[in-house]
């Protein structure tokens, strides 16, 4: 058993409990991917088997059917309250990646999310982003306050010392809380293996291809792989040189694409 995973697990549980204690109206963003799956498992550990807040899924209508089926089955198994958010106006107007990938992300994901935050009045939102995913996420705080429009002031973030998270904010501030910020992609898979947690089957290789990162069907590519089990994926990640999000088309649109999306409230 890896003691580094113990340290990460304890840190994450501490953060989850802190968020639950500090924000009376808290929710967790559930993207159906491996990182959210680990985050939910950690939350069930933190709260002794319960999920004492709703799971929010932002549905762009472009997700793989296997993802939606997995979502519905697992939320039932966990006894979780699932809230599905959709930017109906943009969907009705025919928004899709053909109108520009970044515009589509902004409309269907960022706006879908901010509409949901406004409607439900969530003060805290738990997100499973990780520092090793890409450069702008490497700069994140664990408790990351957002402005009225969910904007991220990445050039002037508050200090964050030890586990004394900043929780005194002006009325109306919404805070993104990142319980697994310090985990790497490899840690996620090692933990899934150790805890025997079920994940979406799209991650496992079929016909020589697998998804390394899950997103919307038109903008998410597969990698060549024969890794068909969690253990085989761990072995593959130890030698792979390409970055994790190489198959995510929106990241590749232009320089600083992710920084610009995230400054406006993207996850």
């Amino acid at each position: 058993m890896s003691d580094h995973l113990d340290r990460l697990e304890a840190e994450s549980i501490y953060i989850l409990r802190e968020a639950y204690n500090r924000f009376p109206n808290l929710a967790m963003l559930y993207s159906i991917g491996k990182d959210s799956t680990v985050m939910i498992h950690l939350a069930r550990k933190a709260f002794f088997g319960k999920l004492p807040f709703p799971l929010v899924h932002i549905d762009t209508t472009y997700k793989y059917p296997e993802m939606i089926a997995f979502r519905d089955r697992m939320t039932k198994e966990w006894g979780a309250e699932l809230v599905v958010g959709r930017n109906e106006e943009a969907i009705a107007a025919g928004m899709g990646p053909d109108q520009g990938r970044l515009l589509c992300c902004a409309k269907l994901k960022t706006e879908g999310l901010t509409q949901m935050i406004d409607a439900k009045g969530y003060q805290g939102l738990l997100l499973g982003i990780r520092r090793d995913e890409e450069g702008s996420r490497a700069k994140e705080r664990v408790f990351s306050p957002r402005g009225q429009q969910s904007e991220w002031s990445y050039k002037d973030q508050p200090p964050e010392l030890w586990d004394q998270f900043n929780t005194n904010y002006p009325e109306g501030t919404h805070v993104r809380v990142h319980p697994i910020l310090g985990w790497t992609e490899l840690n996620i898979w090692e933990y899934l293996a150790r805890e025997k947690v079920e994940i979406c089957p799209l991650y496992f290789a079929r016909d020589g291809k697998r998804f390394r990162s899950l997103g919307c069907a038109p903008c998410t590519g597969t990698i060549d792989s024969t890794a068909a089990t969690v253990d085989e994926i761990i072995e593959e990640l130890k030698v792979i040189r390409a970055p994790e999000r190489a198959g995510r088309a929106q990241d590749q649109e232009n320089a600083y694409a992710m920084q610009k999306l995230r400054a406006k409230g993207y996850m």
Binding site: H4, R131, D132, E134, G135, S136, A138, K139, Y154, K155, Q157, G182, T184, A255, Y256, Q259
Partner: peptide, 28 residues
Amino acid sequence: LMDALEEERDQNVTIDTAQTFFKTDKRT
């Protein structure tokens, strides 16, 4: 590698702290 923000690269200064991961034969 660490200065990933556009403003950091344009002004050639580190604005915020960043964390990354590194492995030797001994440990991570």
